[in-house]
Design a protein around this nucleic acid. Structure first.
Length: 308
DNA sequence: AAGACGAAAGTGGTTGA
DNA sequence: TCAACAACTTTCGTCTT
């Protein structure tokens, strides 16, 4: 996170912080997420020597995975090769070239459509460009390996986006992806798992804290509440309450408790809705939090009723 | 009347034989 | 391949504010 220069449009505070990875600017005073979609002005690579320059630098038209063939294509053979072939060889050659042509145009057509869809969903969710690129890359690989066969193009696009979000620590819930893409949640989850497994993409379990900023912003919670909940999350992780649990549930519970403590009560329903979990899950996590971390003292300050 | 709480049954996915 | 299993959901009745 780095300091940002402008003033917060909500509270006119100057404590704006920029998180480039997530494409978010967060106001530490009021917790407002000012801008979720921004242009990343940075180079994402660094050059240390000439070979870095050769491999990483991109000049001319930018080579980008959001262009469907990256300006590169495959062609089978050239005329000159024909002289070394007999009649049989020639036939084979033409057949192969025909197939290659069909396959590559099929892939290109598919990519063209898919990347349009990908851009649509990505902009709907206001995802940063880096994530869009990543998911386009993933999708391209998936098409080349024939992983789309038997699956709808849209669901693979959604799966690729989900994977890219996770890799960039800018998690969106399956619900959000589902709403944006119109694909069922389980279908996205399925293709996501399939694609990442087949492509050997490793993805770390997402950190609950990554969800806090967004959730708390849609609930209009204060910055104190927000940072308190991150604090709670850290303690929860030390107490090993987080492993194996759904990160959104934990994030939601931490936010819920934190809101209670700061007298900004939100109903379990409200928190559950933005986090995409049920009230029951929040209750369970919330109960565990109260048991394991001694938050009672904090709670007493708010509702001064003795416990036991 | 709305919200919080918790029990019970159901779902989809993982794991280990 | 199948059954046991954990996490989470759905549903519903009861209690609290």
């Amino acid at each position: 996170m780095e300091k940002y220069v402008k003033k917060c449009p909500e509270c006119a505070g100057i404590n704006l912080f920029l998180n480039k990875e997530k494409g978010e600017i967060i106001c530490k005073d009021c917790g407002l997420v000012v801008e979720e979609k921004m242009v990343d002005f940075d180079q994402e690579w660094r050059e240390f020597d000439a070979s870095d320059a050769a491999t990483k630098r991109r000049s001319g038209a930018p080579m980008t995975y959001t262009q469907y063939d990256q300006g590169l294509g495959t062609e089978v053979g050239r005329k000159a090769d024909l002289y070394s072939l007999g009649d049989k060889g020639k036939n084979k050659f033409f057949r192969l070239r025909k197939w290659q042509y069909r396959i590559s145009t099929a892939i290109e057509r598919n990519l063209k459509l898919a990347l349009a869809e990908l851009k649509r969903v990505s902009s709907y969710l206001k995802l940063p460009k880096s994530v869009e690129e990543e998911s386009a890359r993933i999708y391209t690989l998936a098409v080349q390996r024939g992983l789309v066969r038997g699956r709808s193009m849209e669901s693979v696009v959604a799966g690729a986006l989900y994977a890219a979000c996770r890799r960039h620590d800018v998690p969106r819930t399956l619900d959000e992806l589902s709403e944006a893409s119109g694909i069922e949640k389980k279908e996205i989850g399925r293709t996501y798992r399939f694609v990442t497994r087949e492509l050997g993409i490793t993805i770390l379990p997402s950190n609950p804290a990554d969800y806090i900023a967004r959730f708390s912003s849609s609930l209009n919670l204060s910055a104190e509440t927000q940072s308190k909940s991150v604090e709670i999350l850290e303690k929860a992780q030390k107490a090993e309450l987080t492993s194996g649990r759904g990160p959104t549930g934990i994030a939601a519970a931490a936010l819920y408790v934190s809101a209670l403590i700061h007298g900004e009560k939100r109903t379990q329903r409200e928190v559950a809705d933005v986090a995409g979990v049920t009230e029951v899950t929040i209750r369970n996590r919330y109960k565990e939090l109260l048991e394991e971390l001694d938050l009672e003292k904090d709670m007493k300050k708010v509702k001064n009723k003795g416990k036991n």
